[in-house]
Design a protein around this nucleic acid. Sequence first.
DNA 1: GTCTATAATCAGATAGAC
DNA 2: GTCTATCTGATTATAGAC
Lengths: 205, 205
Amino acid sequence: MGSHNTVKTSFKEQMLLAREDAIIQAVNRLLAEKGFDAMTVDQVAADVGIAKASLYKHFSSKEDLAAAAMVWVMRRAQALLMTLPPEAAPIDQLRAIVRWTVELKLAGEMPSLPSQNSSLRATLIANKDYMDGLMQVSDSLGAWIEAAQAQGNLNPKLPAIAVLYTLYARACDPVIEFLKMGQQHTDPEIVELVLSTCFDGLVAR
Amino acid sequence: MGSHNTVKTSFKEQMLLAREDAIIQAVNRLLAEKGFDAMTVDQVAADVGIAKASLYKHFSSKEDLAAAAMVWVMRRAQALLMTLPPEAAPIDQLRAIVRWTVELKLAGEMPSLPSQNSSLRATLIANKDYMDGLMQVSDSLGAWIEAAQAQGNLNPKLPAIAVLYTLYARACDPVIEFLKMGQQHTDPEIVELVLSTCFDGLVAR
DNA sequence: GTCTATAATCAGATAGAC
DNA sequence: GTCTATCTGATTATAGAC
């Protein structure tokens, strides 16, 4: 009976996790498509195909839903960091991260949150999974930034923090969606354009 | 009596315009501080010091308020364009525009609107003053972009539309507010940092 | 845990007196 | 045109049966 219970519980937990994953995917898509304010909890529930009250059994607020989406993104970012060849040049590591960010946004999987919303901000800061992921990613990027500056591949006059912010800002760069809306460029072309303007700037070289 | 009426009407109209200007200033400040979604019409009314119903005698919707703020910004941009020395190099004209944009944002006078909101989008597109201003500004910038590319000062491989979007995007660049929040740099330093990353990119030159 | 039904709140917009 | 008071709809969140 013990083993039966174990199997049964494990199966239930698996179902639970699967459902929560389905919820997070829906939240992620809706956040990417409409942003936090325009997304409603009703839409999330309808998208997943469950009742709204059931949703609140998994996540206790709309802010928690957004936080879960951000944790998901952070986990994917951390996974990417581990797949990067450690021997590559720091500047190329940074390019790879930005490339991944732009591709995620083009795929409609990058949640967009208002940076001013204070209750959302509080929820994110209180979320240990999110903060830990953010710190780890920032540490990796920070190390690469300083290394690239030391190697003369990145402008050493720029404060590392400003470089870091500029890289993160690609996650909410409106140029990406505007270029996509214009339909004059393919997704790979947009990736290269954004990478070019970000690293090489607008001026001729 | 004719002249009396004329004077009276003129005075009333002046009062009306002054009040509408006060409204627009309040909207502008609130849009810059909290964004469109977080700004409430009640706050605007309280800020101006009139009743909400009075507000709706001047502007028929929240979207119209935001549109008026954007028209104000466009007018200021057009005014700036006229003050620029026509003999300056095109690349310097573009730098001057971006500098002005960043400074306006640092001053808390650049309204921030959600680019996804469709009803707001419709209101803006339907606003002739806004669209005319946008077109005129875009024409000026477009001409400078192509000239700068022809002179070899701007990367000729970049589509002019991508450059234009990249310049406009400085108006909602989160790097600016993040650097300001960090309190490690003065406003002029932030302006130079953003100008540098925008035009020269992150890489060493 | 899932559902239906409902509470509670907030914000955009309006009615009607003055 | 300005006010007070109100309407209306949308949205977050919960109660309570199963």
